[in-house]
Structure formats: C-alpha cells, structure tokens
Design a protein around this nucleic acid. Structure first.
Lengths: 135, 135
DNA sequence: TACATTTGTAACATATTTTATTACAGTATG
DNA sequence: CATACTGTAATAAAATATGTTACAAATGTA
C-alpha cells in the first residue's frame, strides 16, 4: 500500500489555489476530501515547514497558499510528501553470502533511481496551476 | 508502503537465471533472501500462472525458468506483480459536491497513467538477462 | 472581558496491509 | 516406503496508515 500523502497534499493545494484570497479551515478542506481535519492539519504542517502555505490561528483562521501556483511543480510537491517512486524492497536483509542477495538492493536502488529521474522530469513540467486548471 | 512483491519476484528470477539447469527449492531461494519459504512459493505460484517458470514436486523438486531470460523484460515482471506506479489516492471517497473532490481521482488517474507509461517504456528496455548480468 | 472558533500537537485507538508461521495433503525420487 | 519437496489454507504477528479525542494556545468579535 502506498500512503495517500501525495493525493491529500495536492488536494489541499488545489483547493487553496481555487480560493487564493481566503484562509480555508482544516474543517472545510477535510469536508472536500472526507477526511479527518487533524490529518489535514498534519499535512498542512508539512507544507508550512516548506513555506508553501501560511496559516492563521484563532477565529476565522485557516490556511492559504503563499507561493505562486504557476511556479510550484508537482515534482516539488511529490518530494515534500517524502515519497519516491520505486517498486519496493524485500523486508529482510538478504543473505550476504549469496552473490545475488549481496547485491540485490544495490541493483534495485540503481533501477529505482533511474525511474525517479524519469518521473521527476515529467512531474517537473506540471505546475500546481496546470493541475488546478483541470478542475 | 509498497509491498515487496516486485523485489521478491525479481530476486527469485535472478537466482533461477543464475542456475538455469537446476530446479531450485523454495527453501534455498528463501535462504538467499532471508524470507519464509511459503512466501517464495506464493510468488512462484504467480510466476507459474504466467508460464514464466515451471516447478517439479516431490523429492529433488523445485523451480526453474521456462522462458528465455533475454526476452523477458522488467516491464512484464512488473506487471505480473500486479503493481502499478502511482502516488496513491486518499482512502475515502471525496465529496462529490465539491468541484475539486468530484474530479480529483479522475485527474490523479490521468497523471498516474502517464507516469506508468514513462516507467514502462524504461522497464521494457531491460531484460531479466540484463538485470541478472549485473551480479 | 468573555466567548466562540480555529490551529497545533500529542496521545491513543482502530483498520488495513504485509509478512510470517504452522500444518498437512499430495507428489516424485531413490 | 522413507524422504524431501510443492501447494495451499488457516491463522498469527508485525508494520503501517488512518481516525479520534482532547486540550492548550491564539485570535477575532460581541
């Protein structure tokens, strides 16, 4: 299973982009995605750490975008969600006495790295604005 | 989290390719990857369903490759493990009354589909033999 | 000032998925 | 016929993801 972090984050950002002048509450955002507001706030905390959004506490508080949606790429969003493309690793450490076991993870790493480069090149071409305009 | 199916499967196939004339037991294979033999047999069952390997039951039984490693691509292996590239979806059904909620999954689908195409194009260029030769 | 509303965050609970184990019937080998 | 395998089901354990509750702190507003 892949966690839904990226999907949640881009959903949040799309909403914020649709209402660039408002501070949206986590409750409102959560309503659009049918998710617990606390989880929304957690993802927002991550976005704040990356200076992508700003929040206002207290009554009428909420969150708004603080960057230009035309300049924020999906690649950056992808990386902010700590995710990388890959096809996984076996859970346990392989047998170092086996020539295959000894090098399997290294070789998978190399493969996944290449995959990431391809995907990143693609995601870099799409801005939040582009994505948001599809709605 | 992504399951380790692909990693396990390619590990198995690499081993089988290294010993093309032997029937390797699930116990032996499991030893190389420090995994439970039953899990190995499960992945082998999947490979068998795709006619990639053949097994022999009984004493001195085991599994061996039944296709040309030069012609089996990582793309095919990837697809046999039921995995697709993607960055996930939020778990819950989004709010259909929200313009973003209503279309988010559809738009993510389109994005992930493109990503899969890129990745598949890359994986298609690599054969099991190529991968195996790195060891 | 007092109240209502909202963020921020921690602690805990539940659900889901993945991995591991046990068990045993069936099959081939020698 | 004993041994060493596969095949598969049932169950258990571990890991991860998601959800909930609770409450302090901040801020607007009556």
């Amino acid at each position: 299973m892949l966690s839904g972090k990226f999907a949640i984050t881009i959903h949040i950002l799309t909403l914020l982009n649709k209402f660039p002048n408002d501070y949206l509450s986590s409750e409102y955002i959560a309503g659009s995605m049918n998710l617990n507001p606390v989880l929304v706030r957690k993802e927002i905390a991550n976005l704040k750490a990356h200076h992508i959004v700003e929040s206002k506490e207290g009554k009428n508080g909420g969150t708004k975008l603080s960057v230009d949606a035309a300049k924020l790429t999906l690649k950056e969003i992808f990386e902010m969600t700590f995710e990388t493309i890959g096809l996984g690793y076996a859970k346990n450490q392989p047998n170092p006495d086996c020539p295959v076991g000894k090098k399997i993870n290294q070789n998978l790493d190399a493969l996944y790295k290449e995959m990431n480069q391809k995907v990143n090149a693609q995601l870099e071409k799409i801005s939040l604005e582009d994505f948001s305009n599809q709605f």
